[in-house]
Simulated scan of single mutants.
Amino acid sequence: MRRETQNILLVLLGGALLKISFSGLYLRYVKPGLLPLLIAGGVIMIGLALFGIVRDIRRGRPVEKTAAGSGDSAGSGDSAEHDEHDDHAEHGGHEHSHSSRSTWLLLLPVLAVFLISPPALGGDVVGSAADTNQTQRARNLLGELPTGDVIPLSMTEFITRTAWDESGTLDNRRVKLTGFLTRAEGSTYVARIAISCCAADARPLKVKLLGDVPSLPDEQWVEVTGQVVPKSASEQTSWVPSFTVESFDAVAEPAEPYES
Rank of each mutant, 00 (worst) to 15 (best):
N7Q: 14
N7H: 14
I8F: 10
L9Y: 06
L10T: 05
L12S: 02
A16F: 09
A16P: 06
L17I: 06
L18K: 05
F22L: 10
F22Y: 15
Y26A: 10
L27S: 08
K31T: 10
P32W: 09
L35T: 03
G41A: 14
G41L: 15
V43S: 01
M45S: 06
G47F: 12
G47N: 05
A49F: 12
F51R: 11
V54L: 09
V54Q: 06
D56R: 14
D56A: 15
I57A: 09
R58P: 02
R59Q: 12
G60K: 15
V63E: 05
E64R: 11
A68C: 02
A68N: 01
S70A: 07
D72W: 15
S73K: 11
G77D: 05
G77P: 00
A80Y: 02
E81Q: 15
H82Q: 14
D83T: 05
E84R: 01
E84I: 01
D86N: 11
D86Q: 13
H91N: 12
G93R: 14
G93I: 14
E95N: 06
H96Y: 07
S99M: 14
S100E: 12
W104G: 07
L105Y: 09
V110G: 04
V113F: 09
P118N: 11
L121H: 07
V126T: 12
G127S: 13
A129Y: 07
A130I: 10
Q134L: 14
T135C: 08
T135I: 13
Q136D: 11
L142M: 15
G143A: 13
E144K: 13
L145Y: 02
M155N: 07
F158E: 02
R161D: 00
T162K: 00
T162G: 00
W164S: 04
T169C: 01
N172K: 00
R174N: 03
V175W: 00
K176S: 09
K176P: 00
F180C: 07
S187N: 10
T188R: 08
A200D: 11
D201W: 10
A202P: 06
P204T: 07
P204Q: 05
L205V: 10
L205N: 03
K208Y: 08
K208G: 06
L209I: 02
L210V: 03
G211C: 01
D212N: 02
S215K: 09
Q220C: 05
W221E: 04
E223H: 04
T225G: 02
Q227V: 04
V229F: 01
S232W: 03
A233P: 02
S234R: 09
Q236K: 15
T237D: 05
V245G: 03
E246F: 05
A250Y: 08
V251T: 08
P257V: 13
Y258M: 03
E259I: 02
E259C: 03
